[in-house]
Amino acid sequence: MKKVLYLLACLFFLGGCSAKSVPDWTKASHHQLESYKNNYLQDKDRLAEINFRKAAEEIKSSGSFNLLEKAYLTRYAVQVSVLEGFDDRDYRKLEAIEPHPENVHFYLFLKGAFDQVDETNLSQQYRPFLHACKKGKQADVNLSIAAIEDPLSRLIAVGLAVQKQLYDETSLTTAIQAAAEQGWKKAILVYLKKLRDYYESINEQKKADVTRQRIDLIK
């Protein structure tokens, strides 16, 4: 038993020694941006704002336009995921100085300009969704959303589907499920309200009432 413990300790230290040193600003900006996502989706807007500001400051200290563009796009993506619009002036200023294809096409994707998006420059996880949206088949859209692993990415896809009027009960339920798993209260409420409106639009009053009750209880 002792031998096993010694071995583990050795591995621990060796692993520590072999690891490449990561700069403080990278860790800090990553941490702040992750906190921003969680706080914003948990309806803690004030905290989220502080997190984003700190993340941006840390990235600015590195002078990396690419990362700063990514930070702003992350912010816009989070806003899309809860069915909000976004003010893209900050990103556009950066893009005008230093455009990066990956960022440019993700921005077009978030804006809903699917025809202009080059698939090769878009993350792999969104490609089936993009295909499905272009075809306009609801069942394919729902399947492609369900296939996305990352919960935030799933929410972003649902947000874009709602934007394109390519949603139904299944897609909204998928979003509610993803938000509920992560404890993102704001996202849950937003999609529950959307679901209620959807039920009302198709005259499913009973379901709409149940959904309203769920909203009242969660608030």
Binding site: G16, A19, D24, K27, H30, K70, A77
Partner: peptide, 18 residues
């Protein structure tokens, strides 16, 4: 930060698009 440097197999800290 100091402890973080000592821990092996840590999570990636690279900023990526969601």
């Amino acid at each position: 930060n100091d402890i973080d440097k000592l821990i092996p197999f840590k999570k990636e800290t690279q900023i990526k698009l969601p």
